[in-house]
Amino acid sequence: MPNSKGYRGVSTQAAAKHYDVSDEFFRIWLGPSLAYACGLWTDGADTLEKAQLRKEEYLLSQAGIRPGIRVLDVGCGYGGEMRRMVEEHDVESVTGITLSRAAVDWTQNLGIPRTDVRLENWIDHRPSAPYDAIICIEAMEHFARPGMSGRAKIQGYREFFKRCRSWMRPEGRLVVQTISWGHRFPLDVDILRDLYLATTVYPECNPSYLGELQAASDGLFDLVALRNDFDHYSRTLEVWLDNLRADRDRAAELVGPRKAEDFERCMALAVQAFADGWFYLHRLTFRPVPKPTKPARRFLINNVLARDSLPTPRFLQPNR
């Protein structure tokens, strides 16, 4: 992620510290799909696996996934969406990029046809041909690190949007699912202590504000659909937490008692954080603008047309 200091987003080392610990450890609480993202729940009786499948279908539908298209999956995880796009939607090809070596190895071992999985930072990606769709499911949280200013974050996000715009066909779609900052956290010592712990479990991770993504995409994409499903993440996390607690001894054997306990504490905090709206879960669908432009000059629009409070510019005066 380029800025004045050449920041490129989360480092491979930081990604490995969180993700490359043990596939079996993640299977304990994520379930057999290894879907490490918020599900999409119904009001009635539901299961984690159904919620994850429903989330996949919603996002793929928003992206316009259909037979014969080329897709880029940024932060492809364990390949669940890639497999579904090939097996159920008959896409021509899917390229998946991630900074987790464990995820690359796992997905490659699945042997999904017409897929290319790479250990690659998005900023280093060079497509061989335009994509018809790009999906990015809970990877954007790693595009900024704690301590970055809002301006620096927007600059980095805008670079991502610029690249996506240049990589895709004019009629394509970009679909993003991401954790965002919500209401201000209560100033509670225990909560702040657990938040600090979360920075060690999820190193170099700093979610966006929705306004930062809107500013970064301005003039490059139109935001055509938006959902805020923060309560869905609280429900997802409750199931993950129950799964982890049910097999706590096995988890400790796989990654060590300290790391297993840290994950459990972070998830317990996150259940409350999402339920109370401290964090949001945004699902956004973007459509490329026909011709990229600089961000809108809002001062001009907001004030030049204010004829009752400012002199009318000569070029706007009606011809007499």
Rank of each mutant, 00 (worst) to 15 (best):
Q13D: 10
A14H: 12
A15Y: 15
D23L: 02
E24L: 00
R27K: 12
I28H: 05
I28L: 09
G31L: 00
S33Q: 12
L34H: 03
L34V: 00
Q52S: 04
L53N: 05
E57R: 15
D73Q: 05
G77H: 01
M82D: 10
R83G: 13
V86G: 15
E87R: 14
S100I: 02
R101K: 10
R101Q: 13
P113F: 09
D116V: 04
D124L: 05
I134G: 06
I135M: 11
E141T: 15
R145L: 08
R151E: 14
R151M: 11
Q155H: 05
Q155S: 14
E159I: 04
R163Y: 00
C164H: 03
R165E: 01
S166R: 10
P170S: 12
W181S: 03
W181D: 06
G182Q: 04
H183E: 03
R184Y: 01
L187K: 14
D188R: 07
L192N: 07
R193N: 10
D194H: 06
P203F: 06
P203C: 09
P207L: 11
G211Y: 04
E212F: 03
L213N: 05
D218K: 00
D218W: 01
D222K: 00
L226I: 02
D242F: 05
D242G: 07
N243T: 03
L244I: 02
R245Y: 01
G256E: 01
G256V: 02
D262A: 10
C266S: 08
Q272D: 03
F274G: 08
A275Q: 03
F279N: 12
Y280L: 08
H282M: 06
H282S: 07
P288R: 07
V289A: 05
P292N: 03
K294I: 02
N303M: 12
